[in-house]
Design a protein around this nucleic acid. Structure first.
Lengths: 142, 142
DNA sequence: GGTTGCTCCTGTAGTGGCTACAGGATGTAC
DNA sequence: GTACATCCTGTAGCCACTACAGGAGCAACC
């Protein structure tokens, strides 16, 4: 049984974020010491590690919640998790393709600037006039 | 001179977002018709296109503000913009590398699930126990 | 002239996923 | 015993939007 600080260090998840996950019901309410401090065991470490990893993979909280729910469900849940993962894979592929495009353009922009003349720099104009990469407003490409 | 709806369609930026940009001073206050409707000209279209494109490239609003400011500055501003773009390129490269790692893992996860037996699906366990991607600086995850 | 239906207006509040306090209690090391 | 770290609750803030509510303006057709 470890304290929240140790759980944080062990999983790389911020203490405030752990409490936030508890608040929104993504992590179960842990046991407490007599003085009211949270105590976590191995299953908590596992679950939080899973959550962190899933967040890194780009899954949103609702999806993670679903996956955690599937854990306790009867058979066929694997197919469901797999389907979710497949959707996510497509999204990841899409992001990679977009980022590769962005990389090309940034490289081109930097190159067009590097050859000396300040007056010739057209980064902003180039960006303004460039055709949109993908019509997906609101997508955060992180 | 066009209305906000036309500007939105032309640039792919949501009307609400255009007004938001005006509110935070990222877009200048436009002229108005007698009845109070916003009217935009070519420079507005250009600036908004630039902003949208920069957002797609992953620049945050503060950085875009800086770049727009540099536009009106004397020489040497190109080097500044170029430096900002270079920083951004490094960040984009980092994201691509991480996403490629994630893609591998998702693929592996889906594969491990695809061979029939429900009881053998270990997606969640795999994810819980996998070493964190982020905490591996310099590691080549491909 | 009336009506339908689209666009636009302001203002405020909500979203996701955290993150940062304030103000206090508890635990540990010297 | 005292200094300092860690923890507690609760609330408010962050970014970059997005979604209303409740109303006004405008264009087209009958």
């Amino acid at each position: 049984m470890i304290a929240i600080g140790a759980l944080s260090r062990r999983t790389g998840v911020n203490i405030e974020t752990i409490r936030y996950y508890e608040r929104i019901g993504l992590m179960p309410k842990p046991g407490r010491t007599e003085s009211g401090r949270r105590r976590y065991g191995t299953p908590d470490v596992q679950q939080l590690a899973f959550i962190r990893h899933a967040r890194e993979l780009g899954f949103d909280i609702a999806t993670i919640r679903t996956m955690l729910g599937l854990r306790e469900m009867p058979n066929a849940s694997c197919e469901e998790v797999s389907r979710i993962a497949q959707d996510q894979l497509a999204a990841v592929d899409d992001r990679i393709a977009r980022l590769l495009g962005l990389k090309d353009e940034l490289t081109r922009m930097i190159g067009s600037c590097a050859n000396g003349k300040v007056a010739d720099c057209r980064i902003i104009e180039v960006m303004a006039n460039h055709v949109s990469l993908a019509a997906r407003p609101g997508q955060n490409s992180s």
